[in-house]
Structures are given as structure tokens and as C-alpha cells.
Design a protein around this nucleic acid. Structure first.
Length: 510
RNA sequence: GGGCCGCUAGCUCAUCAGGUAGAGCAUCUCCCUUUUAAGGAGAGGGUGGCUGGUUCGAGUCCAGCGCGGCCUACCA
């Protein structure tokens, strides 16, 4: 819901015009703003604060002893008046410090200004000395104050939580009202910084590759399409960084990584957003065993920094990253669940077995796809503690290298935690002839109606023909990692601006 | 995509059985010089998501649509 009776976007409307159509709450604030403007600048250019809330609290003893005047600033969260005094909690980035305004100290005019013209939601700077109230609340006794900015719209109610929808749609209000929401997003930022620090220590080079690509690849997903006007050509938003990062390996950059948005034109739910953040990293001379080692060290470090000594509470379970991660071969796990070695099964027998276990068989489903479905159904839900699933069927992994011992498999692993896939990695395929065959097989899948299969990328094949060293590669979903570490099961809690459907019905006038 | 639930004041929510709407916070007026979900007295504020239907009468019953939440299936 919105305050004004007409357009949702405040930018669509000149708030000074058509006052009769304004919401009364906004009209009242505009009126006060006018009065206030006659007394003080409405939009000053800065404020020279001396202390943040954290610094005030840290230095309290010294500041009180010296009777020092501090200058502190933030947003007004509430006003509690007793006629000739006023208590005002003021929130800055880190926390809240209460200010105490007293008529006798400020004089008639200035006290009326804070009492009548300045609203909850406004920004203000206060200067004064510190004291503790009767109820032991650290407080600034205000000697003077400076108006910093006006809020024309009211803040949400302070006592009840906003709905998840409102938090997601109006993140500025969520952040304004909920310090724990700010903390969650700071944790996200700290996690990403720490991943960068780790990879930098491991001598990986951070790079940037194109978001707009003439051809998409590196994952199985439907892309977003867009159009370049000057070139009059279709471009795709990337679904993965993989093919470009491998070009850099071919070029001789031995360890590269990118943390960036990928875009997949698929369903949305509490674990999927159309754009999401992915870490991909590639190391020359490494295989997937080396990547498992890297993964384990990275996640253990993060769990020690952001969890409790390497353990992470997630919902009802405690995830332990201190122990060596579990390892299970893809086919072994399936064999254990079904009591049969599925490698030797005929396609018909496999299909009927899958059906028995509740797999929905669709047209164009190859046997490896069926195996994948079976695995999702039977094995994944039970993979709570960090577990590497290794050595997948070939068809599902068109960019992974053949297994060095077992025909029909590739050297790949996925790391599962709390039942969902966090990391996907392989010994990268670097034989251009084999890569071409894999692309041909994908093309056949597209022909058979699989709209997630990858198109043939001639430019990439040509790159690989220049010679690619043995390489290990890895992709890690950052959003899901953050969800694990901050203990939430909804991706909207870890995305500042998750994609939301428009509130207005489509086609309504702008 | 499927199932279930929801949409009422700026925010969070009530409204039993169909008789055209209430509370707390916020806003406005008044009282109160250490409050903290401040308190007290009063006032204003509503296209009950949208569109249709049933009915003398619909926030309430029915249908369609929109948006959201949870569960479920799939791509990270």
C-alpha cells in the first residue's frame, strides 16, 4: 500500500502540487517543513559529528569525567515527551543513543522546534554532555541541535515487525527499523570480503568477465535475452562465468576467480532469485581433488569466523565444518538406496525403477537425467552434514573431464550441506575434440526438446584448441552460503533487493 | 507449476451468525521537567486487493483475476 492516493513512485508526483490529493500524514509533515524552513536550513550540507553511537558508548567513562561535549547524529526513532522535556532515541549506523531535550536548557523557540516541527524519521545532529538517567540509560543532555533532513513519509510502527513482503519491497524501511537486518547484510558483506581475502592469499587473481554475451554457456539453464541496438544483435545475460574464465586459463593466468551476478530465466522461490551471486574459480594444474581440498579449507574458515568455532546452527540442525567432509560416490549412494548397481541396468529397467521411486518421467529424458532425478529424490535430502558427492554420470556434465578410472563417469563433485547443493566442481575438460563431441551431444538434447541444454560455442572451442592446461574449476552459490551462515531459509533475507512482482496490476497507467 | 492460507486506517492486527468497520502504534489538540512499547484526556484518518455474481442488504457467501506467505516439484 502507498500513502499518496495516486502514483506509487514519489518521483512521479510533485509533492508541492495538488495538496488536496495528498495523504493527510504527508500534508502535515509538509506543513511543518514549511514552518521549519523559516527558522533553519532544511537541507544543510553536512554535520561534523565527533562520535558514533559505538564510540560514545566505548568512551563513556572518559567523556563523562571530562564533561565533554559530543556531537552525535542520526535518525529520530521516537519522541517521548513530558511537556517541558523530551526524550528522543537517535539511531546511527551502529546503534541508538538517546537524547534529552529540556525547555529550560534550550529556550522556548528551540524547544518548540524539536517538540512540534521535527518528526519521527527526520535526521538530526545533537551536541551535549553525557549522563545516565534514573533508569540507567546513557543519554546526551542536548545543549544545541541541528536539523539535518526531513522525512515526509512516516516510519513503520516500531513495536511489531514488518511483513517479509514489506521488508523486501521497502528495504530502506527494514534497514531503518531493524538493527538485526543491518547486521545480517553486514555479515553477508563480511563473508564475501573474507572469501576474497582467502582466495587472494591462495594467489588467485580476481577478474571481471562479460555479463552480456553473444552466446551463453557454462551451466544448464534458460537465459535472459536482450538486444544490442547499434549492432542489431541478440545478447544473452550470462548464466555462468565458466567459459570466459577458462579462456583466461588458456591465456596463461593460472589462478583466477570472479564473484559476480549470474542470471537464470527460471522459477522463483525461497531459494531462487532470477539474479544471484556466484563465485567461480579456476586453477591450472589442479584436479577436482585439489578443488575439494580448497573448498573444505574455505568453508571451515568461514564457519569458524561466522559460526561458533566451526559449527553453524541452521534451523533445527547443527552443521559441523570441523570434521573432514563426508565423501560419497554418486553411483554408490544410489546403489545403497536402491539395492542395485544402476550402471548395468538397461534403460527400460532404469526407467521403471525410477518410476517406482516416484520420479516423473518426461519426454527426452536420458538415462543420466533419470539418475539425477533419482539422486535428488533419494539421496540429497539426507545430506545434512557437509558431504562431497563425487563422480557423476557424463551426460549431465558437458564441461567435465572423463573419469580417469571409470568409463561413463566424469571427475566432478558437488558439495551438499543441509540438503542443498552449495558447490559444483570438476576436473575441467581440456581436450577440444572431446569438448566438441560433448557440445554435439548437447545440441542433440536441444533438438529433443531440452531447453536447458547448452548451444555449441565455436569461439570457445577455438580457444580450447589453443591449448588449455589441466585445470580444476569450482562454482559456489554465495547467496545460499550466506543463508547457511546467517541461519535463514529464505533467500529474500540475504538479498538487499530481491526480485518482486510489481504491486500494480500490469497495464495500469503510469 | 501444484496444494493450503492470507489481502481491512500510514504500520501491525481484530471484527463470532451477512445488517455498510474497531484497537494499538503513528498523526493532530490539551495536561505532565529523568522517559524508554512513557502516561492521561480528546480528535481526525477506510474505494475492506480488483472485477463480477447471489441477496432487500456483502469486508463477511460464490466465481474469476492480481499480489503475498507456507508446503511441494525443478535450476545455484
Amino acid at each position: 500500500m502507498i500513502l499518496t492516493t495516486a502514483p506509487e513512485n514519489p518521483g512521479d508526483r510533485n509533492l508541492d502540487d495538488a495538496a488536496d490529493s495528498l495523504h493527510p500524514l504527508i500534508a502535515a509533515r509538509l506543513e511543518k517543513m514549511e514552518q521549519l524552513g523559516a527558522e533553519v536550513p532544511l537541507y544543510p550540507y553536512g554535520y561534523a559529528r565527533t562520535h558514533t553511537s559505538t564510540q560514545v558508548r566505548a568512551a563513556e567513562a572518559d567523556l563523562v569525567a571530562r564533561e565533554a561535549v559530543v556531537k552525535y547524529s542520526g535518525r529520530i526513532l521516537a519522541k517521548r515527551g513530558t511537556g517541558k522535556t523530551l526524550f528522543v532515541p537517535i539511531c546511527d549506523q551502529d546503534g541508538i543513543i538517546q537524547a534529552y531535550f529540556r525547555k529550560d536548557d534550550l529556550g522556548e523557540d528551540r524547544f518548540r522546534r524539536i517538540q512540534k516541527l521535527i518528526d519521527i524519521g527526520d535526521w538530526i545532529g545533537v551536541e551535549g554532555t553525557l549522563f545516565r538517567t534514573r533508569t540507567d540509560e546513557l543519554t546526551i543532555a542536548v545543549g544545541d541541535f541541528t536539523f539535518l533532513a526531513k522525512a515526509i513519509r512516516p516510519l513503520p510502527e516500531k513495536y511489531h515487525d514488518m511483513s517479509l513482503e514489506n521488508k523486501s519491497r521497502r528495504r530502506h524501511l527494514d534497514l531503518a527499523m531493524n538493527l538485526e537486518s543491518r547486521a545480517r547484510f553486514r555479515t553477508r558483506s563480511a563473508i564475501i570480503s573474507d572469501i576474497r581475502a582467502f582466495l587472494d592469499e591462495e594467489e588467485f587473481l580476481e577478474v571481471e568477465t562479460p555479463v552480456l554475451q553473444p552466446l551463453y554457456g557454462g551451466a544448464t539453464a534458460r537465459p535472459f535475452m536482450t538486444h544490442h541496438n547499434a549492432l542489431d544483435m541478440t545478447l544473452y545475460m550470462r548464466i555462468a562465468d565458466e567459459l570466459y574464465l577458462k579462456r583466461l586459463i588458456v591465456g596463461g593466468l593460472e589462478r583466477v576467480y570472479e564473484i559476480a551476478k549470474d542470471f537464470r530465466n527460471e522459477g522463483m522461490d525461497r531459494t531462487h532469485n532470477p539474479e544471484f551471486t556466484m563465485l567461480e574459480c579456476y586453477a591450472a594444474y589442479w584436479d577436482y581433488h585439489d578443488m575439494m581440498d580448497l573448498t573444505e579449507r574455505l568453508l571451515r574458515r568461514l564457519a569458524r569466523r561466522f559460526g561458533q568455532e566451526g559449527k553453524v546452527n541452521f534451523g533445527e540442525v547443527e552443521l559441523d565444518f570441523n570434521q573432514p567432509f563426508g565423501r560419497v560416490r554418486f553411483m554408490d549412494a544410489l546403489a545403497e538406496k536402491t539395492g542395485r548397481d544402476l550402471m548395468d541396468l538397461s534403460s527400460d529397467d532404469l526407467a521403471s525403477l525410477a518410476k517406482k521411486h516416484g520420479v516423473e518421467l518426461k519426454k527426452g529424458m536420458g538415462r543420466d537425467k533419470i539418475l539425477d532425478e533419482l539422486f535428488s529424490l533419494l539421496v540429497e535430502p539426507e545430506l545434512t552434514q557437509p558431504t562431497f558427492v563425487m563422480d557423476h554420470p557424463k551426460e549431465l556434465s558437458p564441461l567435465a573431464k572423463d573419469h580417469r578410472e571409470t568409463a561413463g563417469l566424469v571427475e566432478r563433485f558437488e558439495l551438499f550441506v543441509a540438503g542443498f547443493e552449495l558447490v559444483n566442481s570438476f576436473s575441467e575438460l581440456n581436450d577440444p575434440r572431446e569438448q566438441r563431441r560433448r557440445f554435439e551431444a548437447q545440441k542433440a538434447l536441444i533438438g529433443a526438446g531440452d531447453d536447458e541444454a547448452q548451444p555449441i560455442d565455436e569461439d570457445f572451442l577455438q580457444t580450447m584448441e589453443s591449448g588449455m592446461p589441466p585445470t580444476g574449476g569450482l562454482g559456489l552459490g554465495i547467496d545460499r552460503l550466506v543463508m547457511l551462515l546467517v541461519d535463514t531459509n529464505n533467500i529474500r533475507d540475504v538479498l538487499l533487493f530481491p526480485h518482486m512482482r510489481p504491486e500494480d496490476a500490469p497495464g495500469s497507467p503510469g
